[in-house]
Design a protein around this nucleic acid. Structure first.
Length: 462
RNA sequence: UGCCCAGUAGCUCAGCGGUAGAGCAGGUGACUGUUAAUCACUUGGUCGCUGGUUCGAUCCCAGCCUGGGCAGCCA
């Protein structure tokens, strides 16, 4: 009995093979008088393997009832196809029905809406589009590790359950084993988390940055790549409650280095997907976003535009463009402003840096002007913010002052402050939203469609 | 969370104050090295839920539920 061959390998064959074994799911069946065409897909690639099933096979009557979605194993000979459209096909000697699928199988041969497919998240990876998306997702994750590993970065697993609720990146999910119906109470009537599992309040992490800083101040170049959780009631096509984030953190690194790293990183990922997921990208180009390949190449080849926040505000004010929200110094750039910069004015990714200190978190390094901090955001056409980063405040006194200004209690940040007390060095890092990068690379417009089983407000089915 | 849009067959949609139609899928048959095959016939619906208006509601109104778009928060 031969070892199973993947559809991908079968289609890439360089010579016929008179004994081949293929597993897969039936995509479609077409009958003729003396034989049937069976298209088998096993997810190894976008394409199906065409199988010729002769009516002389003993179980041919059963095979004629094989419908879309059924699982089958085929033994036979890989031969050059007589028809157009594929180089190889399999002439079956035996077809074993492993798992039938009846008429209630929800996936048709015809296209479905993305909204419908979301409701059958357990079956949608069997569609062409989602097969492509999740193969690209896998490759993108691999490329991320490759980029950092090639450059001597150390992969750090920062905690998912965190004891600090003060990372300043949004609402947190509480982690508790207390009995919600009858929680232990303190004398003041508040819930007594000292009696909880970790003997303190705990949450799901919103960022591994602070912990990554600790490791960067020891291993010099580190990165995290893991799940993060935000309990924000965000209902948009680019927010999820559970998403993956890549957070490099580099010691002896300033904002300029940081911006360069982010730019090199994004370009590397695009080039990697461009060369390793060519087939999948053609499907996105055909059915999702006609301009995808051009945009990817454009972004990979051209330098990102860099403008300071102050320049960006001036540029937007002078543009003469009417915005729904006015542009003024000291407020966050609105989506429409970011879109104007990256889609209309520069028509390429834009790195905006040096934001007013008031609108950024306490850990960002204060610039010499005393009014801005070394923050940077990378904005890309179609998605908006994909990277957010900064050089961190390494000066103990300034950090404490920042915390004071943000009304944070240094007691809650003991270990973090320690990093400035012992061998403190300039360091910087950023966070890149994995799903947003995946959206950019595939052209898919909704974050719910690049996550295997998406978690969004009001939705954690599956 | 706010504003806007939509819920009709398994899917994608049309329709209309007098309780419904198409294409695809499914079934049957024909035809064919086909490839989202083709052709003929055919099964299939409490028109999201609950109230209200009306002689009569799938259609008009209100509330609710679900989905989507945009905005805020961010990655």
């Amino acid at each position: 009995m031969p070892n199973p061959t993947s559809v991908k390998d079968a289609l890439a064959a360089t010579a016929p093979n008179d004994s081949i074994l293929v597993h897969g799911w039936v995509r479609t069946r077409r009958d003729t008088k003396t034989f049937s065409f069976l298209e088998l897909n096993d997810g190894s690639c976008l394409h199906n393997l065409q199988v010729i099933v002769s009516s002389t096979l003993p179980n041919y009557a059963e095979i004629q009832h094989l419908s879309t979605g059924a699982a089958a194993t085929v033994r036979g000979r890989l031969i050059p196809s007589q028809g157009q459209g594929q180089k190889w096909e399999v002439a079956a000697d035996a077809v074993e029905i492993i798992g039938a699928a009846d008429a209630t199988y929800p996936l048709q041969k015809k296209g479905h809406t993305l909204e419908f497919l979301r409701e059958i998240a357990h079956l949608r990876p069997r569609s062409n589009l989602f097969g492509c998306i999740f193969r690209v997702r896998s490759r993108l994750a691999f490329a991320i590790h490759q980029f950092f590993q090639e450059r001597g970065f150390v992969y750090v697993h920062t905690p998912i359950v965190t004891g600090s609720d003060c990372e300043g990146a949004g609402e947190l999910f509480r982690v508790t084993t207390l009995d919600m119906k009858n929680p232990p109470k303190r004398e003041d009537g508040e819930i007594d988390y000292a009696k909880d599992f970790f003997a303190r309040p705990t949450f799901l992490t919103v960022s591994g940055q602070l912990e990554a800083e600790a490791f960067a101040c020891a291993l010099s170049k580190v990165y995290t790549f893991g799940p993060t959780f935000r309990a924000e009631n965000s209902n948009t096509s680019r927010h999820a409650s559970e998403f993956w984030m890549i957070e490099p953190e580099v010691a002896f690194c300033d904002l300029q280095d940081d911006m360069q790293l982010a730019e090199d990183f994004v370009k590397y990922l695009i080039r990697d997907i461009r060369t390793h997921c060519a087939d999948d990208l053609t499907l996105f180009t055909r059915f999702v976003d006609k301009g995808l390949l051009e945009r990817l190449d454009f972004v990979a080849e051209r330098p990102f535009q860099r403008v300071s926040y102050t320049e960006a505000v001036e540029l937007l004010t002078k543009s003469g463009h009417k915005f729904e929200y006015p542009v003024e110094y000291g407020t966050n750039l609105q989506s429409e402003h970011e879109r104007y910069l990256t889609e209309v004015h520069f028509k390429c990714p834009v790195t905006v840096y040096n934001y007013p200190k008031e609108i950024k978190p306490f850990y960002m390094r204060l610039n010499d002007d005393g009014r801005t901090v070394t923050a940077m955001d990378v904005l890309v056409p179609g998605i908006g913010e994909i990277v957010g980063g900064s050089q961190r405040e390494e000066r103990l006194d300034v950090l404490l002052e920042n915390m004071n200004r943000h009304q944070l209690d240094p007691k809650d940040y003991g270990w973090y402050i320690d990093l400035r007390r012992y061998g403190s060095v300039p360091h910087a890092g950023f966070g890149l939203g994995f799903e947003r990068m995946l959206m950019f690379v595939t052209g898919v417009g909704n974050i719910r469609d690049v996550v295997p089983f998406a978690r969004t407000p009001g939705n954690a089915a599956f």
